[in-house]
Design a protein around this nucleic acid. Structure first.
Length: 405
RNA sequence: GGGGAGGUACCGAAGCGGUCAAACGGGGCAGACUGUAAAUCUGUUGGCUAUGCCUUCACAGGUUCGAAUCCUGUCCUCCCCA
């Protein structure tokens, strides 16, 4: 497999990036690699704390894929060892450590999902416990001596937490060092990451230099803003679109983003031809409704194919725009031999976590039965009730209630 | 090691003996509206066999007719000094 000309590569590599440190060295590395026909070693670390990948992850994974397509060597590091420490970046507090079993399982699931974006045959997978776990206390102290406290506290979230008098456990300082050690061990040429990872990536660069290696290039991608339009996409903010989600949910969630996100999403998470982006930017301004539908369709298509994307669009039109009931919904069976309180029925569908919640929804007019709003929380299906009813709870939870013995 | 401050619901933060299931803000949820599951406005936000009952204010005890509020012990956090 041959490596394309540097200029061509740069154009692809720089697409969507927020920062490349330092760009000139990247050019040099690319040139050298092309002359010697030696692929560059591109590293991406993942912290397998949450097994559900979403579009936020896809931004970086897609970049990784581009390197694969350019013929470079890509390494996905499952941070099984570092996950036990708990990564402080982003969150302004200490994350809980995970058990070994959970981490292994998460790592497996991570790769499986990432394979929707990466070429699994071209992805080398490594677990960083492989080289981090055998390190002795002496090794760790040696490693730590290559970095200073002052530089460590420079890091943005440490500074903030320190100023807020929040807890910073000492072990959190070791996380960037461990990640940097990964770069040293793997002799990486390039490390990919979100812009929030900048500090960690730079530590890797620093450590490689300390150990006499050619320091890696740090390539940072922007953080994808979540569907709420304010915070970065994250499962813990519940503003994410998972790459494993059902086509209908994917489509619907994509449509719920604020208008100003239409363009960034096209740029960062779709495979839209680069040349068409200016046109799309204009359309996002002038015809947001259709632009957003296109976006939703494209995202759904990328993960489910165009047939499913068409269906998801039709589904959306029907259920949300025309407020029709969907074709398919879960069914719940009840016996007519006894009466059933509406609140209990709602709770048994699992749509709400408690009957107090069900009561609240009913009182607020959030529950309909065969299209009719029921606002009396004492409503009952009397003994002898037969037949089926369409229950709607909240904005979009539908269930079919069947009464038969 | 010494001195000081503090731990309240999903988060931030009031309350400092009864009127506290606990102000206020954020977030969530619902209703109205809408091209949208956006924005905006309104309501709501511990649980239950529900106009009453039960469990919550770090944890364990205690004082009191009555405690998130007072006392004792334990755990945890932050600040200053060493």
């Amino acid at each position: 497999m041959s490596i394309p000309p540097v200029k061509e590569q740069l154009e692809i590599i720089e697409r969507g990036t927020v920062e490349i440190v330092p760009r000139e060295e990247l050019v040099q590395k690319l040139e050298k690699s092309r002359i010697t026909q030696t692929p560059l070693r591109v590293k991406l670390g993942c912290d397998p704390t949450r097994p559900d990948l979403h579009l936020g992850h896809s931004v970086i994974l897609r970049k990784m894929r581009q390197f694969q397509d350019l013929g470079h060597h890509t390494i996905l590091i499952i941070g099984d060892f570092t996950a036990m420490i708990g990564d402080p970046s982003g969150a302004n507090k200490t994350r809980p450590a995970l058990s070994r079993g959970e981490i292994i399982e998460n790592g497996r699931s991570y790769f499986e999902q990432a394979s929707k974006i990466l070429d699994p045959d071209k992805t080398e997978i490594v677990y960083n416990s492989e080289w981090l776990a055998p390190m002795s206390f002496e090794d760790v102290i040696r490693l730590a001596s290559h970095y200073t406290v002052a530089r460590m506290i420079e890091r943005d979230d440490f500074t903030k937490r320190y100023q807020n008098n929040d807890t910073i456990s000492l072990h959190e300082f070791l996380y960037p060092l461990a990640q940097g050690q990964d770069s040293v061990h793997l002799k990486s040429d390039i490390e990919l990451g979100g812009i929030d990872q900048k500090f960690n990536l730079l530590v890797g660069r620093h450590l490689q230099r300390e150990f006499g290696q050619s320091p890696q290039i740090c390539l940072m991608m922007p953080l994808l803003v979540g569907t709420d339009g304010t915070q970065k996409m994250s499962k813990s903010y519940d503003n994410y679109i998972g790459i494993d989600e059902k086509p209908e949910d994917m489509y619907g969630k994509a449509l719920s983003i604020p208008d100003q996100l239409i363009y960034p999403y096209f740029e960062l998470v779709t495979d839209m031809d680069h040349a068409r982006l200016p046109e799309i930017r204009e359309r996002a301004e002038n015809d947001p409704r259709n632009a957003k539908h296109d976006l939703a369709w494209n995202i759904t298509r990328m993960y489910h194919g165009s047939g499913k994307a068409d269906a998801a669009r039709a589904h959306f039109e029907r259920t949300v725009v025309q407020k029709d009931v969907p074709d398919e919904m879960p069914e719940f069976t009840f016996s007519p031999d006894s009466g059933h309180g509406l609140l209990d029925v709602i709770r048994e569908t699992g749509f709400v976590p408690s009957s107090s919640e069900a009561r609240r929804l009913v009182t607020q007019g959030g529950v309909t039965l065969d299209g009719e709003k029921i606002t009396d929380p004492r409503f009952r299906f009397e003994t002898g009730t037969e037949g089926a009813f369409i229950l709607k709870v909240g904005k979009r939870k539908y269930g079919k209630l069947v009464f038969r013995s």
